[in-house]
């Protein structure tokens, strides 16, 4: 046994103890049974600060098995601090295989993006959620928001969208855009850009949401209707970009703005690094073929 293996032997598989995992799995099962409903759970203290994905990590730890292949993204990127740390965490405590390729992963933990590549049946997308309650900034009382969900009183959600139009002339909410799940619960899709909302609709993958600080888990089972709220005369629209990605030339993807210098220089690149790299690789392979000819 190597020194690392002895070291990790002190942890239970995937860090959490088995009773905690069972408790979280029960919450997940309930969440899947009631799509969009926020299930309270006894969130544990994790070896990372709140706001860094404690909810997502607990969900992942409860569903991961030795055969799983884990991918972790942070704003679409595989190589940023949060993604790298969480990937390393599960390599250490669960000894699982990891990947940056969307297609090869069985579990994808994400902070604020949905991969560009379509997900397939059998994949699980785990979201890190800071504030699970879509009504929170409109109604501060938890007792009241729970009642509003129970009685399906969602007029207030539209008040927010009304305010957007009154102030900006269009619905200016660009992320954490509220959705209605299976025609019943209004849900916060976590702070993903509204660009990703249509990907949640009828997705073949299971989508799980974990909020560690707020102690809530919710879920969208595969092939569930997810509709973005809107007005008849101001229908839901996703962001569009004028230019293609500066690296891969892709259009129809969500782009990040990268500031290049202090003279106003900037470029727009795909926020999904895996998707962008794959396109670049296939483009250069194509070029290589042409050169060979």
């Amino acid at each position: 046994m190597s020194a690392t293996a002895e070291h990790i032997a002190r942890y239970n598989f995937a860090y959490l103890d088995e009773q905690t995992k069972r408790m979280i799995r029960r919450a997940i099962l309930k969440a899947i049974s009631i799509p969009g409903y926020q299930v309270p759970f006894a969130s544990r203290e994790m070896p990372m600060p709140y706001g860094w994905g404690t909810g997502g990590v607990q969900v992942t730890a409860s569903i991961i098995g030795p055969d799983d292949v884990l991918k972790v993204i942070d704003q679409g990127a595989d190589d940023t601090t949060n993604a790298v740390s969480i990937r390393a965490f599960f390599q250490t405590v669960a000894d699982v295989a990891t990947t940056t390729e969307t297609g090869k992963a069985t579990i994808i933990q994400t902070r604020h993006r949905i991969p560009e590549e379509s997900l397939t049946a059998g994949q699980v997308l785990v979201y890190q959620v800071p504030i699970p309650e879509p009504l929170r900034f409109l109604e501060p009382r938890e007792t009241e928001t729970r009642k509003m969900h129970a009685l399906e009183e969602y007029g207030l959600m539209h008040v927010k969208l009304y305010e957007d139009i009154a102030r900006h002339g269009h619905i200016a909410t660009t992320y954490a855009y509220p959705v209605k799940v299976e025609g019943r619960y209004v849900m916060d899709p976590s702070p993903t850009p509204k660009f990703d909302n249509p990907k949640m609709h009828m997705s073949p993958a299971l989508q799980l949401f974990g909020a560690g600080r707020e102690k809530r888990i919710y879920a969208v089972p595969p092939f569930t209707r997810v509709e973005s709220l809107d007005f008849e005369d101001h229908p839901f629209q996703v962001q569009t970009f004028e230019e293609p990605c500066a690296l891969c030339g892709g259009t129809g993807t969500y782009l990040d703005e990268v500031v290049l210098d202090d003279r106003g220089g900037r470029m727009f690149v795909c926020s999904d690094t895996d998707y962008c790299e794959k396109r670049q690789a296939s483009a250069s392979a194509l070029l290589g073929e042409e050169d060979a000819r």
């Binding site: 007029g155 207030l156 539209h158 008040v159 927010k160 305010e163 008849e232």
Partner: peptide
Amino acid sequence: RMTVSAGANVGERLMALGERHYGNI
């Protein structure tokens, strides 16, 4: 609701009743 506009204050009940046309509200 002190933090939303007068128009939204008046329109809230209509939206609660399912009115989904911004212009009408």
